[in-house]
């Protein structure tokens, strides 16, 4: 395979693997938040804010991979 082909392959793999890990992380995060909300509905506002913040950090990892894959594909 030519080097350009490897770049395309790497771009696709990077975003795919990042989405895999991020999906698992986000699922755990939201699931635990829902557990907490069901147990103590009175703190659900605080939990929601914290969850959105956590999602932002987790999601950023997938987006870094997206940037890397853009760099690999469109250079």
């Amino acid at each position: 395979m030519e080097p350009v082909g490897f770049a395309y392959l790497g771009g696709g793999l990077s975003i795919g693997l990042a989405a895999l890990g991020t999906g698992i992380g986000m699922g755990i995060l939201v699931g635990k938040t829902v557990e907490g909300m069901a147990r103590q509905p009175e703190v659900s506002g605080l939990l929601r804010t914290t969850m959105i913040l956590g999602i932002a950090f987790v999601e950023a990892l997938a987006l870094y991979a997206l940037v890397i894959s853009f760099l690999l594909i469109f250079k």
């Binding site: 870094y64 997206l66 940037v67």
Partner: peptide, 13 residues
């Protein structure tokens, strides 16, 4: 850096 990349990448994607 992560603030900038997060916002830009989210909007781009």
């Amino acid at each position: 850096f992560s603030l900038a990349v997060r916002l830009a990448a989210n909007m781009t994607a």
